[in-house]
Design a protein around this nucleic acid. Structure first.
Lengths: 120, 120
DNA sequence: AACAGTACTACGGATTACAGACTAGCGCAA
DNA sequence: TTGCGCTAGTCTGTAATCCGTAGTACTGTT
């Protein structure tokens, strides 16, 4: 049930589809493992991201063939499963970035659209 | 299963949570009915939006108390169900716009991330 | 042993897409 | 005039997708 309050949009819904892009972007800098991806995501301002969401995304991306992965047995804890972009992943990142660009442009057009001079 | 091809993000997923915002923005200009909202959304660049999605969103928003609605019997077809923002809707629009703003900012930060002064 | 870092799984919630049904005027042919 | 299809407009059910919460398990360090 919706809160009896105002009902602004939920950040979790905004993440839909964007988490892929975010994860790809993070991995574009350098290979990394789930826990670290999560941390970097949160550092960048994406607060409410759950760890399972990241692991899920990583796996989905991997199964889609956009990532390579290799396990690094660590000497300071359990093994770390590193992920990195491959060609397809790099391609997907580029594509998705474009899609995201035009999408936000359309939204901005709607939000600030033709009402620049409008005293309500 | 995903296409054996590259698997860029899907526009439909991007819409999640944003459709609310888009619909609110459209209604902020002036009251309107589903079919027209759909048309205006598409005109603004949001292509793949389905009509049922718009109707659904309209109803959700209405049941959340963000919209008022009234039926106008038309002389050129079936009746038109108009929707318009009320106070709560206006409030939600403002809130959501802010959320959207910081969200895109975070994303952009990630995408262009390693810009000036990443030497740390 | 307790704790923190790390990985994974299962279930549930929210939202959009697709397809189909239904309503109401209008124009045209028989 | 009646019948039929076309268009504008609305609504509903089901499928598919994705994120969040919670719970589990493993491994070094203190």
């Amino acid at each position: 049930m919706p809160s009896p309050n105002g009902n602004p949009i939920d950040t979790s819904q905004l993440l839909k589809g964007v988490l892929d892009l975010a994860v790809l972007a993070v991995l574009a800098e350098h290979d990394s493992y789930g826990y670290d991806v999560l941390r970097r995501l949160r550092d960048s301002g994406l607060d409410g991201v759950g760890d399972a969401s990241v692991y899920g995304t990583l796996r989905r991306l991997y199964q889609a063939g956009a990532l390579k992965s290799y396990v690094v047995p660590s000497d300071e804890g359990p093994h770390r499963k590193y992920y990195g972009l491959n060609d397809r992943g790099r391609n997907a990142l580029e594509q998705s970035t474009k899609t995201w660009g035009s999408f936000t442009k359309a939204l901005d057009h709607l939000l600030n659209g033709r009402s620049t001079a409008n005293a309500r």
